[in-house]
Nucleic acid binder design. Structure first.
Lengths: 234, 234
DNA sequence: CCTTGTTTTTTGCCATACAAAAATACAATG
DNA sequence: CATTGTATTTTTGTATGGCAAAAAACAAGG
């Protein structure tokens, strides 16, 4: 039925899906936590947050559930929420999982990604190199975020993507420090270039190995910042 | 300092942490969904659920957030919650992730598990074989659950454990059917025995491969039950 | 039958209330 | 003074009712 030519022409004029208050609250809190505005272990009093953000307890609490599911905050029954502390145990666990899931994404990308996506990925890496070189306005993190989005999109595994996004934010508390060491960033880019090469060659085994190494290195760099028993502020 | 012998003796006499209403609601709903009491795609009206379960909308909505984070239900803004439908796309994604995370657990178990845990794991497999043989009261699923718990405990990666538990419940909609085919169960046990062997030999590479195969087989069996385009009831 | 208007549901958010648990401050007692 | 006990205040967990706005269901009118 080619009759509806004028209508089915996919003219995308979506009005913009309004954020929804609860989501905004969740996002704000997420940010507040990852940038360290709330310290790990700090207790979060509902009433205070409500006043602070100008929303009702109902909405706030629902937002808190989301963060709880993300593992960003921890609930002790009848004691309330507190910002989760990242023990080095947990940090290690996170990086172990990241290895597997990013490795998977790499494999899948090598298998399934379109030429477009390949090019987009390569482009984002070069963009990343630029950002590093001339200290552009955009932060390293932002551009790296784009790189990730392309990778995950091309991998075509939403489940893995969700999980990675979660542990990503969760590990942000560490990475803020970890990526700022410029030598590591330099090396990181070399690794990513090699990674792209492997992907373009559709060599999934190599991509897998490179990915594991990359995450391994990132982990070493990050864990250096919390070397010993103490998690990160008591 | 061996002075505190009477106190530091880890005598576990926790009083019992009472369930908490919201958690009960969440758990009930989870079950209701996995056993199919609510069909995939079915819309969940808050008021109805409230009456049904005898709780306030406040508590109910918070519970729904949890299920949402688990991916069990889906929220369409201003349209409400509905039971998530498992497209074969998503199912495939889930099994891909399962492969990686269980594989990781296998590796870690091989590296870190104590002799105790090895024995416990082996025991649970034999128990599983028994349950299969004489159709004991305990369901296959329950015992396999114990197997999993031991494996994950021994692996010592809480992050991976959490994620696995989530996708486990999420995939239950399929597995209810998949594991009931008795030939598959038979074979599944053979695989698990070999898996145990590898773990006891601390051969992590072999364990990894066996684990991947095992999940792969499970996936094939499960996906056979939803062969084509139609997800599972519209 | 398709379009348009009207009513009913249902969601999203808020304010308030209140019992019970926890934290805190304070008193008393050894 | 340290410990134990008690009273006061916070804070959580849950419930109720309310209301605007989106969606769904329904009713006319072309």
């Amino acid at each position: 039925m080619p009759a509806d030519s004028t209508k089915s022409q996919d003219m995308n004029l979506r009005v913009e899906t309004l954020p929804g208050l609860r989501e905004q609250v969740a996002e704000r809190l997420r940010m507040a936590i990852v940038v360290g505005h709330f310290k790990p272990g700090e207790r979060l009093i509902e009433r205070e947050l409500c006043d602070m953000m100008g929303v009702s307890r109902t909405s706030l609490r629902e937002a808190l559930r989301e963060l709880q599911a993300d593992g960003l905050i921890t609930l002790k029954p009848n004691k309330g929420m507190s910002v989760s502390v990242l023990t080095q145990e947990t940090a290690r666990s996170i990086y172990e999982v990241r290895q597997m899931l990013e490795g998977l994404a790499a494999r899948l990308f090598a298998q399934r990604a379109s030429g477009e996506e390949m090019k987009a990925l390569r482009a984002s890496v070069e963009e990343l190199a630029l950002v590093y070189q001339d200290f552009s306005a955009e932060t390293f993190i932002d551009v790296k975020g784009r790189f990730y989005d392309i990778l995950l999109k091309g991998a075509g595994n939403e489940v893995a993507a969700d999980m990675l996004r979660r542990i990503h934010t969760r590990a942000s508390q560490l990475r803020v420090v970890s990526l700022s060491s410029s030598e590591r960033a330099q090396e990181s880019i070399r690794e990513l270039r090699a990674f792209c090469d492997a992907l373009e060659a559709r060599d999934e085994d190599l991509a897998w190995r490179l990915c594991l190494d990359h995450v391994q290195n990132a982990a070493k760099a990050a864990l250096k910042s919390i070397p010993e028993g103490a998690p990160h502020e008591a």
